[in-house]
Amino acid sequence: MRNKFIASATLLCSALAVATAIPSFSQAQPERHRVRVCRDVSSRGARNTGTAVGAVGGALAGNALSHGGGKTGGTILGAVAGGVIGHQIAKHNDTHRVCHWEYR
């Protein structure tokens, strides 16, 4: 009889210890999940190079297409237009997306 009582008391205490430990353990650790984080990366060096190459190409094209005394104006106008176009092309092509995973 005494052994049954000790066994029952031990079993009851063990069950109470487990029952009180489980809820506090699950509340202590918040649920974490994996999230993909992306950002756009660009370098300004490629934009500057695109502007310079476009300006030189536009100046050569403007000089070749202009006639007579307007060669200087055609060269300047071609350089400006080529620089803007070269910058826009380099800006568009230079941006790329970098992604990684984080746990939050």
Results as ranks from 00 to 15, higher is better:
residue 86 G to V: 10
residue 3 N to I: 07
residue 95 T to L: 11
residue 29 Q to K: 13
residue 70 G to C: 00
residue 29 Q to T: 09
residue 56 V to T: 10
residue 44 R to F: 14
residue 81 A to Y: 02
residue 15 A to E: 03
residue 87 H to Q: 15
residue 3 N to P: 14
residue 25 F to T: 11
residue 7 A to N: 02
residue 58 G to T: 01
residue 66 S to I: 03
residue 95 T to Y: 06
residue 40 D to F: 13
residue 16 L to W: 09
residue 86 G to A: 05
residue 79 A to Y: 13
residue 16 L to C: 15
residue 51 T to Y: 07
residue 59 A to D: 04
residue 37 V to R: 08
residue 15 A to S: 15
residue 2 R to Y: 00
residue 42 S to F: 11
residue 104 R to I: 06
residue 98 V to W: 05
residue 89 I to N: 06
residue 58 G to H: 01
residue 62 G to W: 08
residue 41 V to M: 02
residue 48 N to M: 09
residue 24 S to K: 12
residue 27 Q to L: 05
residue 73 G to I: 06
residue 84 V to W: 05
residue 5 F to G: 01
residue 88 Q to R: 11
residue 58 G to N: 03
residue 58 G to R: 00
residue 9 A to N: 03
residue 2 R to A: 09
residue 91 K to I: 01
residue 13 C to P: 04
residue 60 L to A: 12
residue 77 L to H: 00
residue 17 A to D: 06
residue 59 A to K: 03
residue 37 V to A: 02
residue 96 H to K: 12
residue 103 Y to A: 04
residue 102 E to C: 03
residue 59 A to H: 00
residue 69 G to S: 14
residue 81 A to M: 09
residue 89 I to E: 07
residue 87 H to C: 08
residue 89 I to M: 15
residue 85 I to T: 12
residue 28 A to R: 13
residue 4 K to I: 09
residue 49 T to A: 14
residue 24 S to A: 13
residue 17 A to S: 15
residue 30 P to N: 14
residue 21 A to D: 06
residue 20 T to C: 11
residue 38 C to K: 03
residue 52 A to P: 00
residue 65 L to T: 05
residue 65 L to S: 04
residue 10 T to C: 14
